[in-house]
């Protein structure tokens, strides 16, 4: 039997720099450092430290797994851009895993993942036996109407459970990078698109407000 694939998983979509090296689903090394800023400077050295701790080098990797958010826009891009650069350099796939898929990994189905999205909103996605529903963003009370899964996971699960008597809040099963790596392992056999940030929020750009001048003798 061939050895289990070696996967390096990482995530900078929130106030942390997280990485894990997995042989199949066995964790060889994992680190998670809380960090408000500076992930761009810290990520690559952290990955090299995790590889070294796991006794591996870049060339030993079968795949990269990266957290694609939703989360901090800049943070998500830091990890995704690095993953794409690494994939190009190593000629191995980089597999993007959303925060929803990572937090739902290994949980009983159906489950809804609810994450704090700040500005009084939450992100949510439900996972049933067949897969995930469309992810959504909204105020907790509107999400509580839309979500039907009895089990809730994620940072805003407790807040939603207050509005949903009878809901069961599930604690996280794995550190985030480990969950991303394990989820990627499941997808390794099938071709995957390049990882892309999963923003779920628009870019907050508005068209200019002042109208252009009237041209009195404009050509038709």
């Amino acid at each position: 039997m061939p050895p289990e694939p070696l996967i390096l998983a990482f995530d900078t979509s929130a106030a942390h720099c997280a990485a894990a090296l997995l042989r199949g689903d066995a964790v060889l090394a994992a680190r998670e450092e809380p960090m408000e800023k500076g992930q761009a400077e810290r990520l690559m050295p952290l990955l090299e430290e995790v590889l070294a701790k796991g006794g591996a080098g870049w060339r030993d990797l079968a795949a990269l797994a990266v957290g694609t958010g939703p989360g901090n826009f800049t943070g998500v891009r830091i990890a995704v851009a690095a993953a794409r650069g690494l994939a190009l350099g190593l000629n191995v796939p980089a597999i993007g895993v959303t925060r929803f898929a990572a937090l739902a990994h290994g949980q009983p189905r159906p489950v809804a993942v609810i994450e704090d999205a700040r500005r009084g909103e939450a992100y949510a996605q439900e996972f049933g036996a067949a897969g995930g529903s469309a992810a959504q963003i909204g105020a907790l009370d509107s999400l509580s109407m839309a979500i039907t899964a009895p089990c809730l996971a994620g940072s805003a699960a407790c807040a939603l459970a207050v509005l949903r008597p009878g809901a069961v809040v599930l604690p996280p099963l794995f550190p985030i990078a480990v969950a991303i790596g394990r989820e990627a392992l499941l997808r390794l056999a099938t071709p995957q698109p390049r990882p892309a940030p999963f923003y779920l929020r628009g870019a907050d750009a508005a068209p200019p407000s002042d109208p252009p001048p009237v041209i009195l003798d404009a050509l038709p």
């Binding site: 761009a40 990520l43 690559m44 990955l47 090299e48 870049w58 800049t74 891009r77 830091i78 990890a79 851009a81 690095a82 993953a83 794409r84 650069g85 690494l86 994939a87 190009l88 350099g89 190593l90």
Partner: peptide, 14 residues
């Protein structure tokens, strides 16, 4: 940042 991280990825890998 995206450019720098992409470049770091390529440089680390190669």
């Amino acid at each position: 940042l995206s450019g720098v991280m992409c470049a770091k990825g390529i440089a680390a890998a190669t």
